[in-house]
Write a protein that binds this DNA or RNA. Structure first.
Lengths: 275, 275
DNA sequence: CAGTGGTCTAGACCACACT
DNA sequence: GTGTGGTCTAGACCACTGC
């Protein structure tokens, strides 16, 4: 790879083949003419960078090699690396900082903190938006139900961690959350550890367990709380609440967390921007 | 502008000045050193394209000039136009189609229909996702309250159109919506017109009134319906509902619609993807 | 000052859609 | 084939950060 001569422009032999050419299958010019079967170079570079990220070659918060270094490493031009990094940056996997370098994104970063929390104070609310106070109710091990195992892509009956907590803003209990994580991969996580940690929970997951949450999907419905849930939020059980069911994913779309939260929307609302 | 000679690379005199240099203000090298005071060429091109879009030079669904034509027109290279169009395309203002051309996005377009409607059927629901049946309850003119006037940036007491309708899926009333539009700009809009129209309401706004909704923001809370609202949705007034308050914007972030909707989330949920 | 990301150009060629 | 968007290169220079 050292000082390999570059073709002026030849679209590398692999360039215009499918991302993962199956092994025992017919040649490219054989049948199945309608499968796209084409992946631009920058997409392939993107995959390579992604692999390094997942393998932990560069850790959250660290700087990755410069565009020119990556270009040399992958034997492509800087512009091609740039396009790959651009996309990863848009997906919030990398963070570019002009004059400094490109960094692995992290939930510890100021601008990315609580990126997935869409509950914000109402405009007329006088409560300061300050950080939430967390009360960990429990953190215990259990067996995954078949549905949970399926969603997290675990073997049936695998161990999972169940965490329950209440978030309060200005002393007002507002969010009741139940999280579910694969026990494998979060060994040593305890109520104590959760209580001692400052900052976003997803940042703790990164630093202590090397698990970075990359994207999530939420399903929102309106519900009434169960009597016990109502008590935890200090409301009566006829108060309408938002129920937010989240699945959070790491690299390669691997589901790593199921979370079900109840949001009290008296002084707050769920804010969403549609583009 | 005709066959003007291009500098090989000089960043055009205007390039590195603020987007809109204020008239009666000090020179660039004067005080206020911390205002960014720098706008790349492609951003300026973007603004120019945006102006043409807003002025109606190209109508929704129409093809805009090719990248090379635009490059010639703006006296920049094709790559610079490309970057401008890329961003407008990401914001869903334009739609690129390889081999065909670049088109002004429209809510009539298959892939953009109901882009702002995040309510989807539950997975287990057996109701077909078919199009909603619309019942227009009324469409009447009124005076804007001070709050509405402020939000829509209208003069106090301006005329607005109030529209109320129910959307049903598979015969089940599911959404109750109140829309509020500036009367100015939607002249001739009636319950009759709304009933006769097929397809997305925002498509009707485009074709008949030349108003294109470009983005929106929503505030979601959980509520109980008023007795009248409950009756419209055929539920009892203790059913928890999602209340979705939307402000929709046209070009240049001009607010053009206020909408307050109640979603019944028995067979549906509000789906949101977090990146 | 050097190093990094950001912008811009000019030119070549590929993939796709239509005619 | 022609025209359009899409990819890739090579090289230049600008803007920001920190030594």
């Amino acid at each position: 790879m050292g000082t390999a001569k570059k073709n002026t422009f030849d679209m590398r032999e692999l360039s215009y083949l499918p991302d993962a050419p199956p092994d025992g299958l017919p040649e490219r010019d054989a049948l199945s003419p309608k499968v796209p079967a084409f992946s631009p170079l920058y997409q392939q570079i993107k995959v390579l960078i992604l692999q390094s990220l997942k393998a932990g070659e560069w850790k959250p918060g660290e700087m990755i090699p410069s565009e020119f270094e990556l270009a040399a490493r992958f034997q492509v031009s800087q512009g091609t690396v740039r396009k790959a990094v651009d996309e990863l940056s848009q997906e919030h996997l990398l963070l570019r900082r002009q004059g400094k370098g490109t960094f692995v994104a992290t939930h510890s970063e100021q601008t990315f903190q609580y990126r997935f929390l869409k509950l914000v104070p109402n405009a007329e609310s006088l409560l300061p938006a300050g950080p939430a106070h967390r009360t960990i109710l429990w953190c215990k091990k259990a067996k995954a139900t078949s549905e949970i195992a399926k969603t997290l892509m675990l073997a049936p009956g695998s161990g999972v961690l169940q965490i329950r907590r209440v978030l309060s803003f200005a002393g007002v209990p507002t969010i009741l959350e139940d999280m579910c994580l694969p026990a494998e991969g979060f060994k040593g996580l305890s109520a104590e550890a959760l209580r001692n940690h400052q900052g976003p929970t997803y940042a703790l997951f990164e630093t202590t367990f090397g698990v970075r949450m990359v994207r999530a999907q939420e399903k929102i419905t309106a519900v009434h709380p169960s009597p016990e849930d109502a008590q935890m939020l200090n409301i009566n059980d006829n108060t309408p609440l938002l129920q937010v069911e989240r699945i959070a994913f790491t690299y390669q779309d691997k589901p790593m967390e199921i979370r079900r939260a109840l949001y009290k929307t008296v002084h707050h609302h769920y804010r969403n921007d549609l583009n």
